[in-house]
Design a protein around this nucleic acid. Structure first.
Lengths: 257, 257
DNA sequence: TAGTGGTCTAGACCACCTC
DNA sequence: AGGTGGTCTAGACCACTAC
């Protein structure tokens, strides 16, 4: 018989009640003082227990309002189709996907010429600190911050593709633009990892405690060298990535229901 | 000028010192009472600040020892080559990868016939609760819990491939075994997401606060239907997945250094 | 104004690790 | 034994939200 500390008992009890539907997603938990009475514990102990649930992403709290059970709608991103030239689409793939899902996309955009960070330089096979074009997107869905995307192009590419440094969008998409210049992306290398957000990421994505970020790095290659490196940061609670590989004709047949 | 609460100042100061190398990965932070004196704050306030860093995955604490700056070695998993029949390997792909990395793999294994959970049933296109073979792996690298992997096969497959229910390993790999019976996996659909671990996952993977899990679901298809669904749970701090797509001959040329 | 969570303190006692 | 973090309490005051 190993006795759990009181704040864990509180957290476990509440977790069970959340799981069994006593407190459904979107609903509010009892206040700290109510819980304090119910569990015969000091307010600090209750807060300690609630804090566990917060860092586990089960509930979120706001001053003056209380604790709310989190609810997630996940957005699916098809990474293997994304910017596949065989699936023609106007403009940027992200906006298309979001609009198709019946949501309202919105993004801010900027272009810079900056020294490539070590992580990017390594992937672009250029020297650390050598310059690269950074095209940075901060994306929202229905005004909720959704992801940031930073694409770096090595400086040597700019001579052939001067529009890369233009501050506005490239209507047909940069991949298409480069292809029209004979610089074709024939393959890419994707890396995916997860971690807790840095304070900067937490600020941009308005992430509270208990929500990790999904990091997606795509390095694109022409026939003879890397031509771009895109680092995308997603809110982990709102996004799921997928890849379709091989023959999936059996997947779409006989859709359930 | 918006004043930060004291515990955030503590966390920010320590984070800066971790970033600039004052406390390198693996080193120990000053004790709570030392920090209490340095920041002229009560021990609880210091704990509050340290707890922020813990939930952000920057440090970990253990009773009697103190706070240690976390260090990560990440293991790369090539998901597009993984179990690709064109890259022949003996036995299971995971052990091969780990051994090649100079690490020592080890796993526990069990087989069950259980009702398929809703998530899996949906992907296997069978009714929720109908039976499925579950082959479950708990994997370690150098005795550190690394990932869990649960593969479900629909019950109808067992008639054709009775060895699926055998309690031991299938030496040539299940994918190969099924292929030898004419049930070929011609494509798969991968889904990747990240979230904080459930208490059960935290227990199996020995995850502390501040470390998310990476969830990887692979549904494999034959020509006419789904034949398996594999759910893998990774420690987010130790793993990174990657996909090679298209022609990457330019990637391996001129390796840096 | 009343109720919610957010910050902070001071102090007590316990559990674990090292010497 | 002495130092470390882990748990818990009681109480104070502040900031935000709702009505």
């Amino acid at each position: 018989m190993n006795k759990q500390p009181k704040y864990r008992q509180v957290a476990d009890a509440l977790r069970r009640e959340i799981d069994n539907g006593t407190y459904p997603p979107g609903s509010r938990l009892p206040s700290e003082s109510e819980l304090s009475a119910r569990f015969d514990a000091s307010r600090n102990t209750i807060r300690n227990g609630l804090n566990l649930l917060v860092t586990q992403g089960l509930v979120s709290s706001s001053q003056g309002l209380g604790y709310e059970v989190t609810k997630h709608e996940v957005f699916e991103l098809n990474a293997s189709r994304f910017e596949n030239l065989e699936f023609p689409q106007n403009g940027d793939a992200y906006s298309t996907d979001v609009t198709n899902a019946g949501r309202r996309p919105h993004q801010t955009f900027r272009v810079e010429l900056t020294p490539a960070p070590a992580y990017v330089a390594e992937r672009l096979k250029v020297e650390e600190g050598s310059r690269a074009v950074l095209r940075f997107c901060h994306r929202f869905v229905d005004d909720v911050p959704w992801s940031t995307q930073a694409t770096h192009y090595p400086e040597w590419l700019v001579e052939q593709g001067p529009r890369l440094t233009e501050p506005g969008d490239i209507a047909e998409g940069t991949t298409r633009y480069l292809a029209s210049l004979g610089i074709e992306q024939v393959g890419y290398f994707d890396e995916i990892s997860a971690r807790m957000p840095t304070p900067e990421e937490a600020r941009l994505l308005e992430i509270g405690a208990g929500v990790p970020v999904l990091l997606w790095t795509r390095t694109g290659f022409s026939n003879d060298r890397p031509i771009r490196c895109t680092v995308t940061t997603f809110r982990g609670d709102l996004n799921r990535m997928n890849y379709e590989i091989g023959d999936l004709s059996a997947r779409s047949e006989n859709e359930p229901q």
